[in-house]
């Protein structure tokens, strides 16, 4: 890729970074949603047991 005659001053390729950024966004949002769900269930179940 570096050997190709890229126009000066332009980032060539770069999809790896894009995929990494979107993947991390998806993972963090999904993980937080999942953790919240688990914590909520536990707390509310414990509450129901009373």
């Amino acid at each position: 890729m570096n050997e190709m005659a890229m126009p000066e001053g332009v980032i060539g390729g770069g999809w790896t970074y894009v995929i990494a950024g979107y993947a991390i966004t998806a993972i963090v949002l999904a993980a937080y949603a999942w953790i919240l769900r688990r914590r909520l269930r536990r707390t509310e179940n414990a509450e129901d047991e009373r």
């Binding site: 332009v10 980032i11 060539g12 390729g13 770069g14 970074y17 894009v18 950024g21 979107y22 966004t25």
Partner: peptide
């Protein structure tokens, strides 16, 4: 035009 594809990170960042 300069950042190429990498600029797409803007839409989440």
């Amino acid at each position: 035009r300069h950042m190429g594809e990498v600029q797409r990170l803007m839409y989440v960042h």
